[in-house]
Nucleic acid binder design. Structure first.
Length: 714
DNA sequence: AGTGAACGTATGTAGACAGCATGTC
DNA sequence: CTACATACGTTCACT
């Protein structure tokens, strides 16, 4: 089917232009199936097809059809980075007078602003949050697109996705639902849930050879085999060099951050003779950019050193700027190889000629090393082959012997993916979503609550009765904590309920009700004195992921506790408590302006981890301050103060300086050292440019920026 | 004494969403 | 039901 033919199916003519501009003439087979299943007639659709086989376009057919007749679309994705990526894509529509917006936790726009948008791209949590806040326009949506629906399978985030979809469908009964999924075996079940047609296909726009390597030979069960040119003693390195020799790039997936650095370290050097002088010059430049952002930590320095030679590692501990930069450098072809933890498999599309899954096992504290799900490996495999650039893609696992090779082929190449299952029956998920369902008025009684649960994916796979016991327990918890009020005596099927003011606020703040109850308990207690006690309050909350206790951490943490008996009283001396304390100490060092490199060394974390922990802490400190306000606690100012320091990682005395854009913890400290302690002190600096040189890290450009900001404000 | 291969042992382990008010180095 | 790769320390042969 050609794009032009879509007119017959009801696509507005302008839609043709959009696709035409992208150079699309003919539809892929799964896309044709989507059309035949009625995307353009507003029918619900589940599209279970491999990555990069044109899923987005099918959803766009529904979106364009709707939007051209005055409709509104909500497009839900699992990652912030994906939200921005889709946002950029849909911006093309603005040419036709449509408004496109993004809403994520850190790129937030007012509900008012978003209500003028025809297409809003958002994460599932942000969508959930907007529902909790009672955002008006969300009840006026005509198309709901859910990208990567198979993530309802995820323990932590799946429940949010299914609850949010269920609510959106209840609020917008007439809306078209388009769900995009990886090829999962029980896609039919998802389709049943969403009352949708199903298109399932393994078709790919570019040939993908999947296989297993052993003894310098890749066995592609469906595509013969291939000798690997192995002049390296490390298999992964040989595979990478081999791919680069053929003019391609390679992605190597590893099971841990350390392994990703290690694998990259072994590849570095094996590509030197394959880089042109021009490429070397460019890489040198890019490497220096990386040092500019983070030249302080050992890891940042190492990353820069590797990038100089065409290789990078990639994992969630790196700073966001580094991650985005590495991704960009790989798609531009400057980098030849990336060694990555599973982040890259689920993030933005970053195709490579060859994908090497070096580690197919991942550590699980309950079991030891455990083979990862087939879906995860398929997701990594799916990154092989750049459409239009590579003749084909190759994806391989590495085996250490023949037996393992055959096992790997059976399981990961020939085998089916696992079924996905609802994780809604997990207590942490349930207490949060039950509260929000009540607080936002979706359910005012037990029977309404169960009616709602009946609309979730959980109810498709289980009898709702199976969740009742758990729901009752959760309701009991919410009532006893004062987050909801229940009519009458006891919980019966006839009982009605409503959220209390504080329960409503907890739901809006988007924190786990258990976090809220812990915080409220601390705030009502007597005499919190030192910063560390507030920081620990935040770290003992289930919303904070605490740090792992290394052997070498015990002495440090235990001796701190010895000097702080008040803190020591708060818990048993078990690993759980100690890791809370360790995390609190990291946060304390952050707001005491300790050096990045030192913090990384002391706590065994990466530089991006510090910021991620700090930002979670800031959110929780903000929530604590809000709860404090409602419960008349004495600590509001204290919490606000800490929140502010947490945001920038500074001591109190810098808070004035740091509020100026362009000035962060480092520059603020430099300015302070040079006698500029407040905004008004800075006017002197601006008026007397010759003094600028005295302050490290503050150049003419920054001064210019400060000038503009201060001039505007005063 | 210095170097370094070869072997033994201790160690640590993936990811990333949310509020709020505006902008890192 | 199910533990790996790696960094670091020690030993010992050889210059």
């Amino acid at each position: 089917m050609m794009v032009d033919d879509l007119l017959d199916f009801g696509l507005p003519e302008e839609g043709l232009e959009i696709f035409g501009d992208r150079g699309i003439e003919e539809l892929y087979p799964p896309q044709v199936d989507g059309v035949r299943s009625g995307v353009l007639d507003g029918r619900n659709l589940v599209l279970a097809v491999p990555t990069a086989s044109g899923k987005t376009l099918v959803s766009e057919l529904g979106i364009l059809k709707s939007v051209f007749s005055g409709g509104r679309t909500l497009y839900i994705v699992p990652l912030k980075a994906l939200a921005y990526e889709k946002f950029e894509l849909f911006k093309e529509y603005e040419r036709y007078g449509f408004n496109v917006g993004v809403a994520t936790g850190d790129y937030d726009r007012s509900a008012d602003y978003l209500s003028d948008m025809d297409v809003v791209v958002t994460t599932s949590e942000k969508a959930d949050s907007m529902l909790r806040l009672g955002t008006d326009w969300i009840g006026d949506v005509d198309v709901v697109v859910c990208d990567e629906v198979h993530l309802v399978d995820s323990d932590r985030r799946g429940p949010t996705l299914e609850v949010t979809l269920a609510k959106l469908m209840m609020m917008n009964p007439g809306a078209q639902v388009i769900a995009l999924s990886a090829t999962i075996s029980n896609a039919r079940e998802i389709a049943n849930w969403l009352d949708a047609g199903l298109v399932k296909s393994d078709w790919r726009p570019i040939e993908l050879k999947e296989g297993v390597v052993f003894d310098d030979f890749i066995d592609f069960p469906f595509d013969g085999g291939k000798e690997v040119c192995s002049d390296e003693d490390d298999v992964a390195t040989s595979l990478v060099r081999d791919a680069v020799l053929e003019g391609g790039q390679a992605l190597v997936f590893t099971s841990s951050r350390r392994n990703s650095r290690g694998a990259a370290g072994r590849i570095v050097g094996s590509l030197d003779d394959l880089l042109s002088p021009m490429e070397e010059d460019r890489l040198m430049e890019l490497s220096n950019d990386i040092l500019d952002v983070d030249g302080v930590t050992e890891e940042g320095e190492r990353l820069a050193r590797y990038v100089r030679r065409g290789v990078a590692f990639h994992h969630a501990g790196l700073r966001n700027t580094h991650l985005r930069r590495i991704e960009k450098l790989f798609s531009s072809g400057d980098l030849k190889a990336i060694c990555s933890t599973p982040t890259l498999a689920w993030g933005i599309n970053l195709p490579a000629r060859r994908v090497v899954v070096r580690d197919y096992k991942r550590y699980d504290p309950n079991y030891g090393m455990k083979p990862i799900p087939v879906l995860d490996v398929k997701q990594m495999f799916g990154r092989a082959g750049r459409p239009g650039m590579d003749p084909y893609g190759e994806a391989v696992l590495i085996a250490k012997n023949e037996v393992e090779r055959d096992q790997l082929i059976d399981r990961y190449v020939v085998g089916d993916t696992e079924n996905i299952t609802s994780k809604l029956a997990s207590e942490p998920a349930l207490r949060s979503h039950v509260l929000s369902t009540i607080a936002s008025g979706f359910a005012g009684s037990y029977s309404e609550l169960m009616d709602f649960i009946d609309r979730t994916f959980f109810a498709v796979q289980n009898r709702p009765e199976d969740i009742q016991l758990l729901v009752k327990r959760v309701l009991g918890f919410l009532e006893s904590e004062g987050f909801i009020e229940v009519d009458g005596f006891g919980l019966g099927s006839g009982s009605g309920f409503d959220a209390t003011a504080i329960g409503k606020r907890v739901s809006e703040l988007y924190i786990d009700p258990l976090s809220a109850s812990r915080i409220l308990e601390r705030l009502s207690g007597r005499g919190m004195e030192s910063d560390i006690e507030f920081l620990h309050m935040v770290c003992e909350t289930p919303d904070m992921d605490t740090l792992y206790m290394r052997k070498s951490d015990y002495s440090r943490v235990e001796s701190f506790l010895k000097e702080n008996p008040r803190l020591k009283e708060r818990g048993e001396m078990d690993d759980w408590f100690l890791s809370e304390v360790k995390t609190s100490l990291l946060l304390k060092d952050w707001i005491d302006e300790e050096d990045d490199g030192d913090i990384c060394d002391w706590y065994g974390v990466s530089s991006g981890d510090i910021r991620r922990k700090a930002s979670t802490a800031e959110w929780l400190l903000h929530s604590a301050a809000e709860l404090s306000k409602m419960s008349m606690s004495l600590y509001i100012n204290r919490l606000r103060n800490l929140q502010r320091r947490m945001q920038y990682g500074v001591k109190k005395e810098l808070s004035d300086l740091v509020s100026i854009s362009g000035i962060g913890r480092v520059r603020a400290r430099e300015l302070y050292k040079n006698g500029y302690r407040t905004k008004s002190d800075l006017h002197e600096l601006i008026d007397n440019q010759s003094l600028v040189r005295e302050v490290d890290g503050v150049g003419a450009k920054t001064i210019e920026k400060i000038k503009r900001e201060l001039g505007g404000n005063e």
